[in-house]
Amino acid sequence: MFDFLDLDRYDLFGAFWTTVQLTVLSGIGSLIWGTILAAMRVSPVPIMRAFGTVYVHVFRNTPLTLIIVACSQLLAYTLGMTMWADFGTQSLSFRLAVLGFVLYTSTFVCEALRSGINTVPVGQAEAARALGLSFTQVLTLIVLPQAFRAVVAPLANVLIALTKNTTVAAAIGVAEAALLMRDMIEQEAQLVPIAILFAFGFIVLTLPTGLFLGWVAKRAAVKR
């Protein structure tokens, strides 16, 4: 049944490795940018709050494919951004894809984190302020550490969604799993087995992530 699977001809592991790289890099970027966005949305400075709110609504509601294609067409080809990738188009489109995923996924990280911030009792911030801590210190030392512990499970959802969303990178020619799948379906006329193979590949990636982060969520929960 799986005799179409010629690993010399199709770089299956290479393709999934690209998927993993896309996921990990975009995940780290989204976590950082999403945290900054969440900090903006709860900050006392009106212009920061406004920026955070507008950004989240714009990027969360734009289709991911559109963002990825826009990164490719607008930034790279129209504006000539090279993302410091002067070695081949593969590397450039990879970087553009990561940028697109970060722009998009960070909005979900931000909103998950914001709901986590709401689980931290008001008294926590008050006690921290009463000690004389600054806004940034209150946020980074007291509120965010507790908020993160509350949202490990929702963040796991975001990460799993991101893993599967990386297939959109095929639209701008990043050689990840979905692009290889399209190629194989065209060449082999074995639609169902190939689809099962790739679905299985993604389960292998996401299932341990979900189980591991579920365990972390339990361990990290704040005991009040």
């Binding site: 009792p121 008294g123 926590q124 006690a127 302020r129 004389g132 507790q146 704040v222 005991k223």
Partner: peptide, 20 residues
């Protein structure tokens, strides 16, 4: 304000210790 608060100790009804 933060500097002034550092000189004013506060104890709350609900303790508000940092649980983490």
């Amino acid at each position: 304000l933060a500097r002034l608060r550092a000189d004013v100790g506060m104890v709350f009804q609900s303790f508000n210790l940092f649980p983490h």
